[in-house]
């Protein structure tokens, strides 16, 4: 049975699209047929992070409006034949997404995919609502910073009251916390909320911690999801998160500062 996963946050710019690209790629690399949908109509970015922007002909809204069929709009990833991308429209506004239209597309995708990853726009308006409405599981992306954590809590409230599962009294949406842009150095200095602080406040099961890393920007410059960069801590952390999502018990890493030797401390850089 296909599973619908929404990547959401409330606050903008916390790493939803970065996570959607890497998570979907990770699932595909594990052998699952995966499609990742850009719900950010009007501000599409997922195609850029996936490096397929020049192959976009039709988009999600074209399919909803029956101007194209699903096969015409789906883009096959160049790196994995298990992975497809359904881009957002850059020109329409978010109201082009209707509950019925989205449901019809998702139902069709369910027939041929194992996982449907929905990259939500920021905010708690119509677009974000459409991205979460049909979700079976939700990955709430948060940065260790007060406004982001507060917005995550708002989103959790919506997931438990406004989604199809909530409205129809089905089993609730399964919620996971993914903490991104984490800097162990700043946590140690008492400048940044720690994993445990955020976990306590949101009381949510932790799917992973992604370190703040320059590799993320490099990856997006190149249009290659960061999870493909085997030398990067961020990639390894995304990989662990995918494993945990699939049920493996993997310990959290990259949350401690690298220990420096005594001499290193004496003479080391700040």
């Amino acid at each position: 049975m296909a599973k619908i996963i929404v990547i959401t946050s409330g606050k903008g710019g916390v790493g939803k699209t970065t996570t959607s690209a890497s998570f979907a790629t990770g699932l595909a690399l594990k052998g699952y047929k995966t499609v990742v949908i850009d719900f950010d109509v009007g501000l599409r970015n997922l195609d850029l992070l996936m490096g397929c922007e020049r192959r976009v002909v039709y988009d999600f809204v074209n399919v909803i409006n029956k101007e194209a069929n699903l096969n015409q709009a789906l883009i096959r990833d160049k790196r994995s034949d298990k992975l497809h991308i359904l881009p957002a429209s850059q020109t329409r506004d978010k109201d082009a997404l209707t509950v019925e239209g989205v449901e019809e597309v998702l139902n069709e995708l369910k027939l041929s995919f194992d996982y449907i990853v929905c990259d939500s726009p920021a905010g708690i308006e119509h677009g974000a609502f459409m991205a979460m409405y049909f979700a079976d599981e939700a990955i709430v992306v948060s940065n260790p910073e007060i406004s982001s954590v507060r917005d995550s809590d708002r989103i959790l409230g919506l997931l438990s009251s406004k989604t199809k599962r909530a409205v129809e009294g089905l089993e609730p949406v399964k919620e996971h916390l993914l903490l991104t842009r984490y800097s162990p150095e700043r946590v140690e200095k008492g400048e940044m909320l720690s994993v445990d602080d955020v976990k306590d406040i949101l009381s949510l099961s932790l799917l992973g911690v992604i370190p703040d890393s320059q590799d993320v920007l490099t990856a997006s410059n190149q249009g290659i999801p960061v999870i493909m960069n085997n030398d990067s801590d961020a990639a390894l952390a995304y990989n662990d998160s995918v494993d945990r999502f699939l049920g493996d018990d993997v310990p959290i890493r990259f949350t401690n500062t690298r220990k420096r030797s005594f001499l290193g401390k004496l003479f080391g850089r700040k």
């Binding site: 007060i146 954590v149 809590d153 708002r154 946590v187 400048e191 602080d197």
Partner: peptide
């Protein structure tokens, strides 16, 4: 007093009120 302690305290109060 570390800034993160202030953040934690403000956040707990804020979230309780939001809820």
């Amino acid at each position: 007093r570390k800034s993160v302690d202030v953040a934690k305290e403000r956040l707990s109060i804020l979230i309780a009120r939001d809820r």
